[in-house]
């Protein structure tokens, strides 16, 4: 059952002087209930903006976001407010995403307070429950964020998102700022919560190995466009789009023998600016297979094999 549908989503920024920053430029995908869709890409690809636009933290420039049949962009304020209880977000930076002047208990209960879900003793109980759920000590509700480590703060952020009982959570690079051993803790927690509470995730990250582990399907973005979507094993074993191939080839493998023998696919050049993306296919300036048609026409996302979509003119030949 599709809980989220994104149709040709565009988010453009206007920094002034007539310039347009096309952060998200026509992205379409869907997520089924209980599923995790991973979204990967490098800086400037628009994955974070996509996640935030879905939650209406940025206004949609064009396109539609449909959550459980409700068109988010076209809804009235009241409906959107109710939707906030069902769609939540976890942030990347555990140091910046918690108000340093609020106690942990108040931070976690903020959603509860805003939507007036519990008061008094019940509120306290709920906060304690949430602390337990994320593996923190119940007694710490009165402490302040700076007294906790990065991993613990991230858990506080997760508890805050869970407080209002959402069905869908955008995980915006939740582990990028954490140490490797703590990353595993958080990923395990997210998986456990998904199983227990039936959550659906949009997992945005640039750590490809973690994404592979937690996601059912993965989408790859480049310069505001979705260039490939497939089931995660399929994507990692048989990447179709040249950019995906380069991306996967760049992952440093923690194995000296493989690292020595395997010559990583070298990619030249820098990521172009989103202010003036290349015409046609955005990746053509760095693609070793670039053809004439690539500078003229932006290849659409087409199904290559069942469930595996890729946006590349190379597939047209087949």
């Amino acid at each position: 059952m599709r809980i989220l549908e994104v149709k040709n989503l565009k988010k453009h920024f206007f920094p002034g002087g007539g310039e347009v920053l096309k952060a998200v430029d026509g992205v379409s995908f869907h997520i089924d209930k209980g599923e995790t869709l991973g979204l990967v890409g490098e800086s400037g690809c628009g994955k974070t903006t996509t996640g935030r636009t879905i939650l209406n933290l940025h206004e949609i420039t064009e396109g539609r976001v449909i959550f459980d049949g409700i068109d988010v962009g076209a809804s009235r304020r009241g409906v959107r407010r109710e939707l906030k209880k069902r769609m939540q977000i976890i942030f990347q930076d555990p140091y910046a995403s918690l108000n340093p002047r609020m106690t942990v208990g108040d931070i976690i209960a903020e959603g509860i307070d805003i939507h007036r879900m519990y008061r008094g003793i019940k509120r306290q109980e709920r906060v304690r429950e949430l602390l337990d759920l994320v593996g923190l000590n119940r007694e710490h509700a009165g402490r302040f964020p700076h007294e906790f480590s990065g991993g613990q703060r991230q858990r506080i952020g997760i508890a805050r998102a869970l407080a209002i009982e959402p069905e869908f959570i955008v995980c915006d690079e939740p582990i990028s700022a954490l140490d490797v051993s703590i990353q595993a803790q958080i990923v395990n927690l997210l998986i456990k919560l998904q199983k227990e509470l039936g959550l659906t995730y949009l997992f945005i990250a640039h750590d490809l190995s973690m994404v592979r582990h937690i996601s059912d399907r993965v989408g790859v973005m480049y310069l505001g466009r979705l260039v490939e979507v497939a089931e995660s094993e399929e994507l990692y074993e048989k990447p179709n789009h040249p950019y995906t191939q380069v991306l996967l080839g760049s992952i440093p493998v923690p194995d000296p023998k493989t690292a020595r023998e395997h010559e990583n696919i070298e990619i030249t050049g820098e990521i172009p600016s989103s202010l003036c993306p290349p015409s046609g296919c955005p990746f053509r300036t760095r693609c070793r297979y670039a053809m004439e048609i690539c500078s003229v026409q932006n290849p659409p996302l087409k199904e290559v094999t069942k469930g595996h979509y890729s946006a590349c003119h190379l597939n047209d030949k087949k």
Partner: peptide, 8 residues
């Protein structure tokens, strides 16, 4: 840095 730039 991004992973492709990291490799470079």
């Amino acid at each position: 840095l991004d992973v492709t730039i990291q490799a470079q």
